[in-house]
Structures are given as C-alpha cells and as structure tokens.
Amino acid sequence: MPLHPDIARVLAGLPAPPPGPLDPAAMRAAEEAQVPPVADRLPLRSVEDLTAGQVPVRVYTPHESDAYGLLVYFHGGAFFLGSLDTHDHVARSLAKETGLKVVSVGYRRAPEHAFPAGLDDCYAAVRWAAGNLGREGATLAVAGDSSGGTFAAAVAGLARDDGFDRITHQVMFYPSLDLDFDVDRYASLRENTVGYGLETAGLKPFNAFYLDSGADPADPRVSPIKRADLTGLPPALIVTAEYDPMRNEGELYGRRLKEAGVAATVSRYPGAGHGFVQHFSWIPEYHRVFEETAAFLRGTS
C-alpha cells in the first residue's frame, strides 16, 4: 500500500534540515521541546524515577496487582538522541497494553560516552530489574525501537553468553541490526532511499557518533545480525515497516533466528516508515503494535 496519508501529510510539512554537520545538543533540545506535559500523558497507577545502580530508569506500573512481570525498554534515537521523556508515551502504552511493569532505561548516549557505555547500562538495568523488581518464573522481556532494538537484541545475546537465563522474550520495533550501511547489502536500502522520513543517506551520519566512539559494525554487540550462533536466544517479535530502509535486515534476522530454532515472529506494518511507534502510534492501525506486543508476550499471537 502507499505511505499512510496521515504520515505523508506530516512528512510533507517538516522543514528541511539545517545545513552542515549534525548538532546533537540542538537536536536533543528540539526533541525535548515536543514532549507533552505530564498532565496530558496516558495515566497509569504509578510512574517513578529510580536508579538501577548508577543508571537512571523510569518504572511504570499499569494497575494494582499482587505481582507483575517486567518489560525493560530501551528507547531509540541513533544512539545519541532520545530520552526517558521523549519516549515516555511509548513506555506508557507498553505498560497499559501488556499489563507488565515497564522499566525504561536512561542509558548513556554517544558522543559523550564511548561504546560500550550505553549497552553496558542497558544490560545492567536488566540485571537490576530482575534482581529488584522481578520474580523467578515471571515474564522478563527486553524491548526497544530502532537503536533501542539494537540494544534489545545485543542484551539478549550478552545474557545468553553469560548464562543469565531470566530473559523470556525480546521485542524489536524496526531495529537497526546491521550497522554496515553498504546500500547494496539490503534491497530496502535501495527501495526506501528517500521520501519516507528516515533516508538511506542519513544512516551513516546519524550513526557516526556511535561508530566514532568505538562501536565496530563487525562486532555482534554492535550489529547483532553478525552473531554467528543464534541458538538459545529468547523468543522474538520483530516489527518492521514497509517503507523503512532497515526493513530487510530486521526480516533477515527473524529468518536467521527461526533457522537457529528460536521462535520468532516477524510482523511488517504496511504504509509505515521508520519511527512509526514513536511518532505515529496515534494512528489506530499503528497503535495496534502495542496490542500485538501484548499478545506475543502472553503467548497468544
């Protein structure tokens, strides 16, 4: 189907990016300026700002219950953008629809913090959540959008390597799984080059802050699709977008997981581009992604 008309209308109204190199401080400030006041956000039973060791986290409790499963969420933003606030609405919707306690992680970002600082924070937050908020045998899912999806996949791999077997599910919304941006590697890099929000030519400069900090695209902690052995990883839900340059790498990762014996579901959202969970989940057919996630985590998808 064509690009959803509501998405097309919003994209058509966006100003051209300023000339010159990317300015992380200015881009972060512009993002934060769009965050609605707390009074206008989806209400939940409680929302608390805590620390997981030294890592800031925001814990969302959806309703009154004697016990909760956990979902640890990593926001997107090309490893240098995004925050607990810019993705607060995503975490709230995940909590409401899944019924799980959601732990959103304020990990350290590039370029101020070199690789693997952000990944280390995400993994540490999962271990902290399991030890302080979770219980044996309950759901402990990791989830993320875009670069947060990279972290979700990488954390699942680190946990397997460490023998930490508490993670029950991994959820990736349009993940960046291969940071080798050779345009001939995946057809979607050619098919969705321009006109859909995230453009293929923008992948290198947007990820340069992370790669220049020491993240090697050949390292499976950076590009999880490079992991040679995918056996033993937790069941996965991989959500892709029809008009995303990174669509095919997510779908390939799903196939590779299945070939390794991992239960994996790949769900492509038609008419959507990269970032639709963050920016366009107010559209009913895209808000459904939270319901699909809930069904996956309940084992009913």
Rank of each mutant, 00 (worst) to 15 (best):
G106Q: 04
R108H: 02
R109L: 15
R109H: 08
P111H: 11
E112G: 05
H113R: 00
A114V: 07
A114H: 12
F115H: 14
P116N: 13
G118P: 00
G118C: 08
G118I: 07
L119V: 10
L119H: 11
D120E: 15
D121N: 12
C122Y: 03
Y123T: 01
Y123M: 03
A124K: 14
A124H: 13
A125T: 04
V126Y: 03
V126P: 03
W128L: 06
A129R: 03
N132Y: 00
N132D: 00
L133E: 01
L133V: 07
G134R: 06
R135S: 11
R135V: 00
E136A: 13
G137Y: 10
G137C: 11
A138E: 14
A138I: 08
T139Y: 09
L140H: 15
A141R: 09
A141Q: 11
A141K: 07
A141S: 11
V142T: 06
V142M: 11
A143W: 00
A143S: 12
G144D: 10
G148L: 01
T150R: 04
T150G: 10
A152L: 02
A152E: 02
A153W: 09
A153L: 04
A153S: 09
A154Q: 01
A154T: 04
A154D: 01
V155H: 05
G157F: 02
A159V: 09
A159W: 04
R160K: 12
R160Y: 06
G163Q: 07
F164S: 08
D165C: 00
R166I: 04
I167K: 06
I167N: 02
T168N: 04
H169E: 10
V171L: 11
V171T: 05
M172W: 00
Y174F: 11
P175G: 02
P175Y: 12
S176G: 15
L177M: 05
L177I: 06
L177A: 07
D178S: 05
D178V: 07
D178T: 11
L179T: 03
D180I: 04
D180L: 02
D180G: 03
D180Y: 13
F181R: 01
D182M: 12
V183C: 07
R185W: 14
